[in-house]
């Protein structure tokens, strides 16, 4: 039984570890902050991977090596070893707290500072069960919204309840697709109309809950063009699984053309 246990534990360890590394699971990342997050992931992964393999291999080995052979010999009588205890406690603390210390500046860079002053503004609104993206237009101001004007069935500005009486709303553009120019910092404002949603863009290594009652400012910068999917990452009701969107990163030129065309449509 000891040998069987060793084999099972070692096989599970080997197979799990193999599949962790044999395939690239992480989506291709295109954001400015992704390399830092990915690097911290890899550091933690190697550290935890070593511990995982060591612990499981040790477990398998120990249960086989110290199986009862049916002889009269007794087990070793020991209540422990304080020095050993202290040693591995300190080493573990250094490992865990060290990882924490190394990763903290990344979090700080992501979340402690607001967007650069030159960043372009986009408002992201989640509602059951779609994402809407609003651009402030040339005046760089978002028009007022009113909940009593919200009508999701009409889509666009009406879905967000934009008040057309507000002059700032005149040049607001609402899109179901998040158009972004490449290499520009984006100042996102996250809102929710009904329940908590979460704006998750795997390719950007970006996630933030959109909470009713909060206007949350976040920022990121896409560095490659292409279409990238957005998924909702906070349970929001029966349509949670299909509340997805597209982030379309295009060249600066294409973006300007798109926005101009949308503004023209409004006239």
């Amino acid at each position: 039984m000891g040998l069987a246990l060793l084999l099972i534990i070692w096989l599970i360890t080997f197979l799990s570890s193999y599949f962790f590394v044999a395939h690239t699971w992480w989506p291709h990342a295109i954001s400015a902050s992704a390399p830092y997050i990915d690097h911290q992931w890899h550091l933690t992964f190697i550290a935890m991977g070593v511990v995982f393999i060591a612990a499981q291999v040790a477990l398998g080995f120990v249960v086989w090596r110290y199986r009862d052979h049916g002889d009269a010999a007794k087990a070793s009588y020991s209540h422990g070893n304080n020095k050993l205890e202290l040693t591995w406690t300190v080493l573990t603390a250094i490992l865990f707290l060290g990882l924490n210390a190394i990763g903290s500046p990344i979090w700080a860079a992501e979340r402690f500072h607001s967007a650069d002053t030159g960043a372009m503004k986009v408002e992201v609104t989640g509602l059951q069960f779609a994402w809407y993206f609003r651009y402030p237009g040339p005046d760089n101001k978002f028009g007022r919204t009113r909940p009593d004007l919200e009508d999701a069935s009409l889509g666009g500005l009406s879905a967000l309840g934009v008040d057309s009486a507000d002059p700032a709303a005149k040049d607001d553009v609402v899109s179901g697709v998040l158009f972004l120019p490449v290499n520009r910092e984006v100042d996102l404002t996250l809102r929710a109309q009904d329940v908590i949603h979460s704006f998750f863009v795997p390719a950007m290594r970006f996630k933030q809950d959109a909470v009713p009652g909060l206007m949350i400012h976040m920022h990121f910068r896409p560095e490659q063009t292409g279409d990238y999917e957005i998924a909702c990452a906070e349970l929001c009701g029966l349509g949670h699984y299909k509340m997805h969107g597209i982030m379309r990163v295009v060249s600066e030129q294409e973006y300007d053309q798109w926005l101009a065309a949308r503004e023209a449509d409004k006239q």
């Binding site: 830092y36 997050i37 995982f52 992501e110 979460s198």
Partner: peptide, 21 residues
């Protein structure tokens, strides 16, 4: 061991960004 070791990933907020939920 297996379940515990995925904790330190989630415990770091920067890594939690892509992994949460």
């Amino acid at each position: 061991v297996s379940g515990g070791l995925s904790g330190p990933f989630l415990a770091q907020p920067a890594i939690d960004i892509p992994l949460h939920d």
